[in-house]
């Protein structure tokens, strides 16, 4: 099995800098509130019960979830009582280590079909309505195209008005092929046609866009399972190689359920955390990692196809507690 990254070279610090640079360039940010100011609250102060509460609050406000936040606070408290940490700075460093531990070094790059004869690599993309699937697909497609891979898109969102047109416009801008069906048609049939076309034309990667659906809509979740089954049958030997769930960084605790239900329906292999360029911290992926062991593979940071970064736990955790303009 050939494993390869998605076109980034530098270490994590280089990445972090690139991400921050991107954020600075495009947006003048006005991150306010206690989360942003956390570091200044903690810096140079001895640890106290009040500081611990502030830390817990910062975690809750980053959408980490109250259970995880309380656990982490208790960990810090225990370390404090053991006199391992004494100052606010140490507490923050300790907390960051704890958070990073949720993301052990693991394969965060995309999984590709084995060898050159293995047929196309298939990436199935799903998510709730408005999570940012189509834009995220454009980002992945561009990154792969820039690596010299031939990419084909499959427009399986036959439900929402003009969703096919939206993907078509992206395909034109990126110069990649798109396979589409009719509005209101069976998305699984489009997926089938796309698999056939992708192997006939020997493209390297096929990315399948699906209609946004709430995980509470059982019939729609079954439809998604059907799409995956069709792909699996049509291209035996590991397809779909990646099943990416797109999650909006502003999502609250309901994100855990999203991930759980989608994982049950289509065996999600990774998360694309979209819209992290706002004020939301995306802490929900920590709860998802803890409870469902699904890694984050990419982070979306803007609306153009270049605004994508491979997920880096260090910079993610760093950004979670970053003060404004730091």
């Amino acid at each position: 099995m050939q494993v390869s990254g998605i076109g980034y070279d530098g270490g994590s610090m280089a990445l972090f800098r690139a991400a921050i640079e991107k954020l600075r360039k495009g947006l003048s940010r006005t991150r306010e509130g206690s989360t942003g100011a956390l570091r200044s609250i903690l810096a140079g102060k001895p640890l106290s019960a009040q500081l611990l509460r502030d830390l817990e609050r910062a975690m809750i406000q980053a959408d980490i979830g109250i259970k995880t936040a309380i656990e982490l606070r208790k960990d810090i408290e225990a370390a404090w009582q053991r006199s391992e940490i004494e100052s606010g700075d140490q507490a923050l460093a300790f907390l960051k280590d704890q958070l990073r531990a949720y993301y052990p070094p693991e394969d965060r790059s995309l999984r590709f079909a084995p060898g050159s004869e293995g047929g196309p690599t298939v990436i199935l993309v799903a998510g709730v309505n408005g999570a940012g699937k189509t834009t995220s697909i454009a980002k992945i497609a561009k990154a792969l195209r820039d690596q010299g891979k031939s990419v084909m898109l499959a427009a399986c969102d036959t439900f929402r008005a003009a969703a096919v047109e939206q993907l078509e416009i992206w395909s034109r801008r990126l110069g990649v092929e798109v396979i589409k069906g009719q509005q209101g048609g069976d998305p699984a049939a489009v997926a089938f046609d796309a698999c056939e076309a992708a192997s006939a034309r020997k493209v390297d990667v096929l990315i399948i866009d699906t209609a946004g659906r709430l995980h509470t809509q059982e019939p729609l979740m079954r439809q998604l399972t059907k799409i995956k089954n069709v792909v699996q049958k049509k291209l035996p030997g590991g397809a779909p190689h990646e099943v990416i769930l797109v999650i909006d960084a502003t999502t609250g605790q309901n994100g855990i359920n999203q991930a759980k239900v989608f994982a049950e329906a289509i065996e999600v292999t990774g998360i694309f955390l979209a819209k992290l360029d706002g004020t939301a911290r995306g802490g929900i992926v920590i709860a998802i990692r803890e409870q469902l062991a699904i890694p984050v593979k990419f982070v979306g940071l803007g609306e153009t196809p270049d605004d994508v970064q491979p997920f880096d736990p260090d910079s993610f955790v760093e950004a979670m507690f970053a003060a404004p303009g730091s």
């Binding site: 006005t30 306010e32 509130g33 809750i60 406000q61 980053a62 959408d63 709730v128 309505n129 408005g130 709430l214 995980h215 509470t216 909006d248 960084a249 502003t250 999502t251 609250g252 605790q253 309901n254 994100g255 359920n257 999203q258 706002g278 004020t279 939301a280 911290r281 802490g283 929900i284």
Partner: peptide, 30 residues
């Protein structure tokens, strides 16, 4: 389904635009 960040965006839009009301979408989710 928005989390804690709902406050930040709602506040900012309200400051800039003087909203008259809010429409909540995807209320049929869990």
């Amino acid at each position: 389904m928005t989390g804690q960040d709902a406050v930040n965006s709602a506040k900012a839009f309200n400051d800039q635009l003087e909203l008259d009301g809010v429409i909540l979408t995807k209320f049929d989710s869990d």
